[in-house]
Lab assay of single mutants.
Amino acid sequence: RGFLEKAAVKKMAKAIMADPNKADEVYKKWADKGYTLTQMSNFLKSKTAGKYDRVYNGYVIHLD
C-alpha cells in the first residue's frame, strides 16, 4: 500500500510541476487524506536533491 501511495503522490507532484495551477486542488486532496509533512517528505524523496522541494514547500504553506 505504501508503495502505491508513494507512486501516486509522485505522479501528482509531477503534475504540479508541469502545471502549477493544479497545486491547490492536489494539496487539498493530500490534506483530506491526512498526509503529514513527514509522510510527504518520505513520499517525495528523490535521487535528485531538491527535485520536489517546490511541491513540498507549497504543501507546507497549504497546511499552515
Rank of each mutant, 00 (worst) to 15 (best):
Y52I: 02
G34K: 06
L63T: 04
N21A: 12
K14G: 07
K47C: 12
S46W: 06
A8L: 13
N42G: 11
K10Q: 13
N21M: 13
K11V: 08
K33F: 10
G50Y: 04
A31D: 05
A31R: 09
I61A: 14
D32G: 08
K6Y: 11
G58F: 03
V26W: 03
F43P: 01
G58V: 02
L63N: 02
Y52M: 04
F3P: 10
A18D: 12
F43A: 05
K14P: 01
K11P: 02
A7V: 13
V26T: 08
W30S: 00
S41N: 09
F43S: 02
K45P: 02
Q39W: 04
Y59L: 01
D64Y: 13
K6I: 13
T38V: 12
K47M: 07
G2H: 15
W30Y: 02
S41E: 10
Y27C: 02
T48Q: 10
K47Q: 09
G50L: 05
A8W: 14
R1A: 14
T48V: 13
R1P: 15
A49F: 09
W30A: 00
I16E: 00
G58N: 04
A8N: 10
A8E: 14
L63A: 03
K29G: 08
V60P: 01
K33C: 15
Y35M: 05
D53Q: 07
F43K: 02
M17G: 02
L4A: 12
Y59G: 00
N21T: 14
V26K: 02
A31I: 05
K51F: 11
T48F: 08
P20V: 06
T36L: 03
F3Q: 13
K11Y: 08
K51I: 09
A49G: 09
M17D: 03
N57W: 15
K10V: 14
Y59A: 01
R54S: 15
S41I: 07
M40Q: 01
Y27T: 01
P20A: 07
I16L: 06
T48K: 11
A31S: 10
M40R: 00
K14Y: 07
Y27Q: 00
D24R: 09
H62G: 02
L63P: 01
K11D: 07
A8C: 15
V55C: 03
T36I: 02
M12H: 05
D53Y: 06
G2L: 13
P20I: 08
M17L: 15
K22A: 08
F3C: 15
L63R: 03
A7D: 08
A13K: 02
L4S: 14
A18V: 10
D19Y: 07
D24Y: 12
L63Y: 03
V26S: 03
R54G: 12
L44G: 00
D64N: 15
D19P: 01
K6R: 15
Y27P: 00
K22C: 15
N42I: 11
V55Q: 02
N42W: 15
L44K: 00
D53T: 07
D32A: 14
S46D: 15
A23I: 04
V55N: 01
Q39I: 08
A7C: 15
F3T: 10
K29N: 10
A49H: 11
V60M: 12
G2K: 14
S46R: 05
N57R: 12
N21F: 09
G2D: 15
K33M: 13
D24H: 11
V55M: 02
G58T: 01
A23C: 08
Y52K: 01
L63M: 06
G2S: 11
V9T: 02
D64V: 13
A13W: 03
D19G: 03
A8T: 12
T48I: 10
V60I: 09
P20S: 07
A7E: 10
G34V: 02
K10I: 15
M17V: 06
S41D: 08
Y59Q: 00
Y52W: 07
L37E: 05
Y59T: 01
V9C: 05
V26N: 03
G58Y: 03
V55G: 01
V26C: 07
S41L: 10
Y52E: 01
K47E: 12
K45F: 08
A7W: 15
Q39M: 13
H62F: 15
Y56G: 02
I16R: 00
F3N: 13
Y52N: 02
I61N: 12
L4Y: 13
Y27M: 02
D24G: 11
K14R: 14
I16Y: 01
D53L: 07
A49W: 07
D24F: 12
M17R: 04
Q39D: 12
Y27G: 00
R54M: 14
S41F: 13
A49Y: 09
D24V: 09
K22V: 13
K22F: 07
G34L: 04
I16C: 05
Q39K: 05
F43W: 14
A23T: 04
L4G: 12
V26P: 00
G34R: 05
A49V: 12
K6G: 10
L44W: 02
D32K: 13
V26A: 06
N21G: 10
M40E: 00
Y56C: 04
S41W: 15
K33Y: 10
F43G: 02
T38F: 11
S41C: 14
K10T: 08
Y35C: 05
V60W: 06
A8Q: 11
E5V: 10
K47D: 14
D32H: 10
V26D: 00
I61Q: 14
A13I: 03
D53H: 05
I16H: 00
K33P: 00
K14S: 09
K28H: 10
W30G: 00
L37W: 03
Y52D: 00
